[in-house]
C-alpha cells in the first residue's frame, strides 16, 4: 500500500474519528493530517487492509485525545450550548454540540457509522469490536442523541 492509497482509502474514517473528538472540521483536518503522517512514518510496509484501519483509528483516537487534553485547560470542550439562542440541530454545529455530549464510545461509533459507509461490519472491523457491539452502541448512542436533540430543540 502506497502512502497515497493509505490516505485515499482511510482518510475518511480517520477524519470521522478525529471529528468525533475535535471542535470543528478544521481541527479534524489538522488532526487527520497528523494521524496519517504518523501512520506512514511508523508502518510504511503494512498493506493489510483488514487491520490497517483499526490500527489507524487507534492512532486517530490517541492523537485526538492528546490534542483534547492539551487544549482543555484553556479551551474547554464540549462547548457550552448557548442558552439564549440555541443553534438549530440540523445544522451540523447543533448536531456536533449534541454529539459532543455523548460518551466517547457512543460518539465514535455513531460518527464513524454515519460518515464512513453506514455499514456495521465495516465499523466493527475499524473499531476492533463485534458487530453486535456496534449495533448496541449505535442504538443506545442514537437514543441518547435523540434525547439531547429534543432537549436542545423542544
Amino acid at each position: 500500500m502506497t502512502p497515497e492509497d493509505l490516505i485515499r482509502d482511510h482518510a475518511q474514517a480517520v477524519l470521522s474519528v478525529c471529528l468525533a473528538y475535535a471542535r470543528n472540521l478544521h481541527d479534524a483536518e489538522e488532526l487527520a493530517q497528523d494521524v496519517l503522517m504518523k501512520a506512514i512514518t511508523k508502518l510504511p510496509t503494512v498493506r493489510d487492509p483488514g487491520s490497517i484501519r483499526r490500527w489507524l483509528l487507534q492512532i486517530a483516537r490517541r492523537t485526538s485525545l492528546d490534542h483534547l487534553r492539551r487544549r482543555r485547560p484553556i479551551d474547554p470542550l464540549p462547548p457550552e450550548p448557548a442558552a439564549a439562542e440555541p443553534v438549530p440541530a440540523w445544522q451540523f454545529e447543533g448536531l456536533h454540540a449534541a454529539l459532543a455530549r455523548l460518551p466517547d464510545v457512543y460518539r465514535e461509533a455513531i460518527v464513524l457509522y454515519y460518515l464512513d459507509g453506514r455499514d456495521c461490519a465495516g465499523t466493527a472491523t475499524a473499531l476492533g469490536i463485534s458487530e453486535v457491539t456496534v449495533r448496541q452502541r449505535l442504538a443506545r448512542g442514537r437514543l441518547m442523541l435523540h434525547d439531547l436533540l429534543k432537549e436542545a430543540n423542544p
Binding site: 490516505i7 440540523w90 451540523f92 454515519y114
Partner: peptide, 21 residues
C-alpha cells in the same frame, strides 16, 4: 434529517480527503 446532516459533512470530509491526497 440526521442522515442529511451527515451527508453534508461527508461531502466536506470527502473534499478534505481529496485535499489530503
Amino acid at each position: 434529517m440526521l442522515r442529511a446532516a451527515f451527508d453534508t459533512v461527508a461531502a466536506e470530509t470527502a473534499s478534505i480527503r481529496n485535499r489530503l491526497v
